[in-house]
C-alpha cells in the first residue's frame, strides 16, 4: 500500500482493531462456505456419499462425482425453483413497502410531541413483536388464523359475517404469512426510522415548521435525507432475511396449500434436507447469496445518500 505517512499510521491502527473480528469470521465462516461452493459442483446426494477421512485433519474428503456446472444449469431449468423465487420476490414487494410505510408512520407519531407517557409505553410495546421467537410467531399465527377457533377469524366474522379459511385458501394463506411478517418487523423499521428522525438537527426542523405547516413537506424536504441511510439498512437487512425466511412460514403452512406459500428458503430446505440433494441445494443457496449481494449493492447505490 502506498499512502502518505499520516494515513499509514491510521491504517496500522485499523489493523489491530479489525484483525480479531476478521480472523474469527474467517475461521468460523469461510470453511463452510467454501465447502458449500465445492459441493455445488458435485453430484452430491447425501445418502450416497461416502467419507474417506480428512485432508489435514479438517477438510472432509468425499467420493461424490464432479459435475461442474450441471447443478447450476438444472436449477435454471427448474420451473419450481423459478416459481419459488418469483413468489419470494412477490412477497418482498408486498411486505417491504408495507413495513416501510407503516414503520415511517409509527416513527412520525412517536416523533410528534405530546402524549409522552403513551409514547414511552408504545416504544416498549414495539420491542415485543421482534423479540418474539420466530418459531413461536409461526405457532401464534397458526393459532390465531385457524378457521374454527382462531381469534382473528372470530373478529372477522363479527364484522363481515363470514369465516374465511385463511390457511386453506392459496391467496389468503399468502396474505396470512405476509401479515405475520409485517407484524413482526414493522416495529423494527419504526424504531430505526424513529432513531433517524432524532438525528435531524432541531433548529433546521423548527425553521422548516415556521415556513410550512404541512407535515409531508417537512418530511420530504427536511427529514428524508436523514431517513435514507436507515431505509437502506432496512432494505438490505429485510431482503437478506426474507430470502432466508423459514421458521414462521414452515410452521404456519409448510409452504401449502399447493405451493402457495412456498418461499425460496422452504424450497431449498426441501431439496437439501428432504431429498438430501445437497449439490443442487448448495447451488441454489449460492445463487441466492449472489442475488442478495446484488440487491444490497443496488440499494446502496440508488437509495443511500450520505448526509
Amino acid at each position: 500500500m502506498s499512502v502518505d505517512k499520516s494515513k499509514r499510521t491510521y491504517s496500522t491502527g485499523a489493523f489491530f482493531f479489525l484483525a480479531p473480528a476478521v480472523a474469527v469470521l474467517l475461521a468460523v465462516g469461510i470453511f463452510p462456505l467454501i465447502f458449500a461452493v465445492g459441493v455445488s459442483f458435485h453430484q452430491f446426494l447425501l445418502p450416497k456419499v461416502h467419507w474417506h477421512g480428512n485432508f489435514l485433519g479438517v477438510w472432509p474428503i468425499y467420493d461424490a462425482p464432479l459435475s461442474w456446472f450441471q447443478n447450476y444449469i438444472s436449477i435454471f431449468q427448474d420451473d419450481s425453483f423459478r416459481d419459488a423465487l418469483s413468489r419470494t420476490f412477490l412477497f418482498l414487494i408486498i411486505v417491504l413497502p408495507c413495513e416501510l410505510v407503516l414503520g415511517l408512520a409509527i416513527a412520525l407519531l412517536l416523533h410528534k410531541p405530546g402524549n409522552e407517557l403513551l409514547k414511552k409505553i408504545c416504544r416498549v410495546a414495539l420491542v415485543i413483536p421482534m423479540a418474539t421467537t420466530f418459531a413461536v410467531v409461526g405457532l401464534m399465527g397458526r393459532l390465531m388464523f385457524d378457521a374454527n377457533y382462531g381469534i382473528l377469524n372470530y373478529l372477522w366474522s363479527l364484522i363481515f359475517r363470514s369465516r374465511p379459511n385463511w390457511l386453506a385458501d392459496p391467496n389468503l394463506a399468502f396474505f396470512s404469512i405476509s401479515i405475520m411478517e409485517v407484524w413482526q418487523w414493522t416495529p423494527f423499521c419504526a424504531l430505526v426510522l424513529f432513531s433517524s428522525l432524532t438525528m435531524v438537527p432541531l433548529e433546521i426542523e423548527e425553521a422548516a415548521k415556521l415556513e410550512t405547516a404541512k407535515w409531508w413537506q417537512i418530511l420530504w424536504r427536511v427529514q428524508l435525507p436523514f431517513l435514507l441511510p436507515g431505509i437502506t439498512a432496512i432494505l438490505i437487512l429485510r431482503t437478506a432475511d426474507i430470502l432466508k425466511l423459514f421458521d414462521v412460514v414452515y410452521i404456519m403452512t409448510k409452504g401449502g396449500p399447493g405451493s402457495a406459500t412456498e418461499l425460496i428458503s422452504l424450497f431449498v430446505q426441501r431439496i437439501g434436507f428432504r431429498a438430501f440433494d445437497q449439490g443442487i441445494a448448495s447451488a441454489q443457496a449460492i445463487v441466492l447469496l449472489i442475488i442478495a449481494t446484488l440487491l444490497s449493492r443496488f440499494y446502496i447505490k440508488f437509495v443511500y445518500k450520505e448526509i
Partner: peptide, 23 residues
Amino acid sequence: FPEWPQLSEIIAEWGTKMMDGQT
C-alpha cells in the same frame, strides 16, 4: 424405496392443488 420422500413432496404439493381447485 429411498425415493419416497421426494415423491411425497411432489404428491403433497400437487395433491393439495387438486383439492383446492388450483388444478
